[in-house]
Nucleic acid binder design. Structure first.
Length: 583
DNA sequence: GCCGTTTTCGGCCCGACTGTTTTCAGTCG
């Protein structure tokens, strides 16, 4: 059992990197900590196993020093080196880095010259005019810091992917209509479909950038202009989510149409993927930047990103896989997966109706699924213990199934599967007796209670449910709510191994608030041979469309059509479910 | 601090924009 989990250790390594930077340490040494932090947080296997088996140093960017420090942190929960670093630096200094325009150098100066170690002191110093006189600072910097301080209150760090995409689509729609726009794409983490995004990157190709830039900074959703140049501008845009306003930075780059594929590749990232691409270009005696791929002997022409990858001897890497988790090596070996697509799906299994806490009738949900082009829809309302969500008693289960039989007889082109989202009770047992469970086509087992159990308890509880012969799939594996609540403590690696053993599927919950199982664990599940099912957890007809966010996660997790249960057509799903555990 | 078909030292991706400068450092992505 580890004293700290991998995310806590990664956070400490990241902080060490920042602290060293504030001390004016060599920036590559600082960067090494940041790289190590990323490597640890992206670990697919269990960190405890890796440490125990002595494989830490096999991880790229983990050397002797890092391996030592990580082991110390994991086994003792402490690190003297880290504690010493913190002693020499007031804890609040790190907060100053949250202000735009303040980096490590300026923060160091502020701390050493004026003793500023908190946002409050920074504000006071600005208002007293003390900042403007510092060397390297000035009146404008001081004003900018004040603005940044005021803005910090209303701007959250990141937003969910659905919020980011909504804003990106709105901006894109307006820019697309402008004269002179040849090609336009959303880049960055939105294009890579990360579960949260910090900003929106837009790219346009045009021969006449000036009027496009002018139109961009004048868009109605633009709240503030951060910077404006001939090829690059940055603004703050506002969006609305559940009637709450949120703010997001949006950057636009305009390049020529010849440069577009290179710029698209560059601004899609990730940063680590870009570094790997550039290093690969150097190996080919070429230089890659956002404008070209060229060297002393040749210049590579590219119409699309695919041409760039091919010029470097690589298969095309889909944006979702560009996270530097082995995609370059796989692209070189020509072993990249053919990623599952939205069009591969024929239905989904975890959905609610007004029989429990959903908003629509069985028929409305069925017709909505049919309209989406699906062959089947699985209904899995809540089970009896979840009284707050109007969970079904055994009597109501029978009545609902009767209605489904009638609908299946009457509706053409869509089949309803009789499922249930069955609560996993505190001790890992299920919420119905065997005779009720036997009436369902399939069972989604989910945790909805006792989130505070220890990791050992929760893991044993979930594994017990997974081993139950009636459980077809595990619903929202950790119960996390993105940017709101961490998942319950559970050893997912052990859960995935149990799922592989028993042939139980794991759900990707496509609701953008959940996106659970996460993409890294999808990769792990695939390598263990666990089958995945993508479910929207829809509580209304329009929420069936959320399924696309689940496809994004699956693609980030390198999943192919064959890894995802609901790519099977109706006939095969019927046969599969009738046989019990399908895999 | 990490890394190696330039391998145990000496690199480490690269460019736009801003503000404070008077030629460039810092920040950002």
């Amino acid at each position: 059992m580890l004293q700290l989990d991998k995310n806590e250790i990664a956070a400490i390594l990241e902080e060490i990197g920042v602290l060293l930077e504030l001390k004016g340490e060599n920036r590559f040494r600082c960067l090494a900590y940041s790289k190590a932090a990323r490597a640890i947080s992206q670990l697919e296997e269990s960190l405890a196993d890796v440490i125990e088996e002595g494989h830490l140093r096999d991880i790229p960017n983990i050397g002797e020093v890092m391996a030592d420090k990580i082991t110390t942190l994991a086994t003792t929960g402490q690190l003297p080196f880290y504690d010493d670093l913190k002693k020499g630096m007031s804890a609040g200094v790190i907060n100053l880095l949250r202000i735009p325009a303040l980096g490590p150098k300026k923060v160091k100066t502020l701390y050493e010259e004026l003793g500023i170690d908190s946002l409050e002191k920074l504000k006071a110093a600005c208002e007293a005019g003390a900042i403007a006189d510092l060397k390297g600072f000035g009146k404008k910097t001081q004003d900018k810091i004040l603005e940044g301080l005021a803005f910090l209150d209303q701007q959250s760090d990141r937003v969910r992917i659905d919020q980011g995409m909504a804003v990106a689509d709105a901006v894109l729609a307006r820019l697309k209509a402008l004269p002179g726009v040849k090609r336009i794409e959303v880049c960055g983490s939105v294009r890579r479909r990360k579960e949260t995004v910090k900003d929106i990157d837009l790219l346009i190709s045009s021969d006449d950038p000036e009027p496009i830039m002018q139109a961009f900074v004048s868009l109605p959703m633009v709240n503030k202009v951060l910077g404006q140049g001939p090829t690059k501008s940055s603004v703050i845009v506002q969006g609305y989510d559940a009637h709450r306003r949120f703010f997001l930075q949006c950057d636009l780059r305009v390049v020529s149409d010849e440069q577009f594929p290179f710029a698209l590749n560059y601004f899609t990232g990730s940063k680590e993927h870009n570094v790997a691409m550039r290093q690969r270009a150097i190996q080919h005696d070429l230089k890659l930047n956002e404008y070209e791929l060229a060297g002393p002997s040749k210049t590579v022409k590219a119409r699309s990103e695919k041409d760039i990858y091919e010029a470097l001897g690589l298969q095309y890497v889909a944006p979702e896989m560009r996270e530097s988790t082995g995609e370059i090596a796989a692209a070189e070996a020509k072993t990249l997966p053919t990623l599952v697509t939205y069009e591969d799906l024929h239905g989904v299994f975890h959905n609610h109706t007004n029989w429990s806490d959903g908003g629509a009738t069985l028929e409305e949900m069925a017709l909505a699924a049919k309209a989406m082009g699906w062959q089947y829809l699985g209904i899995a309302d809540h089970s009896k213990s979840l009284t707050i969500a109007n969970g079904l008693t055994p009597e109501r289960v029978r009545a609902q199934q009767k209605e489904m039989d009638e609908l299946n007889a009457r509706l053409k082109g869509i089949h309803l599967f009789k499922g249930i989202e069955c609560d996993i009770l505190g001790d890992g047992s299920l919420d119905y007796d065997e005779d009720v469970l036997a009436t369902f086509d399939y069972v989604v087992a989910s945790v909805h209670s006792l989130f505070k159990q220890t990791e050992a308890e929760m893991t044993a509880r979930i594994i017990k449910a997974i081993r139950h012969p009636r459980v077809t799939m595990l619903g929202h594996a950790t119960g996390r709510l993105i940017l709101r609540r961490d998942g319950y403590k559970v050893n997912l690696d052990a859960v995935l191994k149990a799922a592989a053993e028993t042939g139980t599927m794991i759900e990707i919950n496509a609701n953008p608030h959940r996106l659970d199982l996460d993409w890294l664990h999808c990769k792990r599940a695939k390598s263990l041979g666990v089958k995945i099912v993508i479910n929207p957890d829809a509580h209304a007809p329009e929420e069936l469309g959320l399924t696309r966010y689940g496809i994004d996660v699956a693609r980030r997790g390198w999943l192919e059509k064959g890894d995802v249960f609901n790519t099977l057509p109706l006939v095969q799903v019927k046969r599969s479910l009738a046989a019990g555990k399908p895999f």
